[in-house]
Computed example of a mutant assay.
Amino acid sequence: MSAADAALRERITELSVHIPCGGLRGPVQLPTRSPSDRGVRWQSCRHENHPVVWGDADVSRERDLCIICLRATAGGRSRWSWLACQDCRAVNSAVEAAWGFRPFALGRHSVMNGFGVRAGAPPEVQQRQIERLTDFADGIGRLLKWRKHEYRRLAGHFDPQADVPLRVWQQELPPGPRASRDAFARLIGPEYPLPLP
């Protein structure tokens, strides 16, 4: 661990939003495996000199800001985690029910969203599956562009070099169904009115 990373871990005592990048970093409480296991690990952001890698996890992050509203949290250590919070997933489901198609694939893994390529399928079926998988990847790219834009808008409330405790971020920018509907409405655009979840 570098001296800078060590100093960072002394200074940050709770999970915080690193304003320069929007990543959550700080100590996180994980389920314990034994009485001697404290269950506390450091979650890094990409700006650390040596980000911590958890060998027993698919992803070395317990929580991230929701990819849609950036107010609530989502994610987890598994590849089978959600990119969006529960409220944003509810809006996504309500839109799917009303419009007949799901606007966003919000599972971290393509299979969570119903996309995959089945081995042994006829070539024309595999081609359609590959096209759907490509569309999924393109959709994640669009969501990441949205996240970058929306994060900059929300982060403007804070010192641009700060580490803001997640609880302070959420006091200033409360999560919930209303925040999720607002984010979706701006993401989709005013020409497409949203059904209420």
Rank of each mutant, 00 (worst) to 15 (best):
E124V: 15
D163R: 02
F115I: 01
A84M: 09
G39F: 00
T32I: 12
A90W: 01
L24Q: 05
A57L: 02
G100E: 11
Q126V: 12
P35H: 08
W82T: 13
A105N: 13
A94W: 07
S81T: 15
S81V: 10
R77M: 09
V28T: 12
R152V: 04
S34C: 01
V53D: 04
H47I: 00
I68S: 00
A155S: 15
A137I: 03
R41S: 00
H109S: 14
A137N: 09
A97R: 15
F101V: 12
R79A: 15
A155W: 10
E62V: 05
W54V: 02
V95K: 01
G141L: 08
L83R: 14
A72W: 03
G107Y: 07
R152Y: 02
V52I: 10
E150P: 00
C88F: 11
E48T: 14
G139H: 01
A137P: 02
N113L: 07
T73V: 14
G116Y: 06
R152G: 13
H109M: 13
G76R: 09
G100I: 08
R128Y: 11
H47F: 04
W42E: 06
L65K: 01
I67F: 01
A98Q: 12
R46C: 05
L83M: 14
A98I: 04
N92M: 09
R77G: 15
S78Q: 11
F158K: 10
C45L: 06
L133K: 04
D159S: 12
S78F: 10
P165I: 06
D87C: 14
Q43C: 07
E48I: 06
F136C: 08
G120R: 15
G156C: 07
V125K: 15
L24C: 04
Q29W: 03
V125G: 10
C66G: 03
R46K: 07
W99Q: 12
F101K: 03
C66N: 02
R38P: 10
P31H: 06
K148G: 10
N113G: 07
S81H: 10
F136T: 03
R77H: 14
E150T: 06
L24K: 02
L30G: 02
A94S: 14
N92I: 11
T134Y: 00
G107S: 13
H157D: 13
Q29F: 02
R153Y: 11
A155Q: 04
V125M: 14
P160W: 13
D87T: 14
P35A: 11
E131R: 15
V117N: 02
Q86M: 05
N113Y: 05
V91K: 05
V164L: 13
G120A: 14
L65A: 00
P103A: 11
L24H: 03
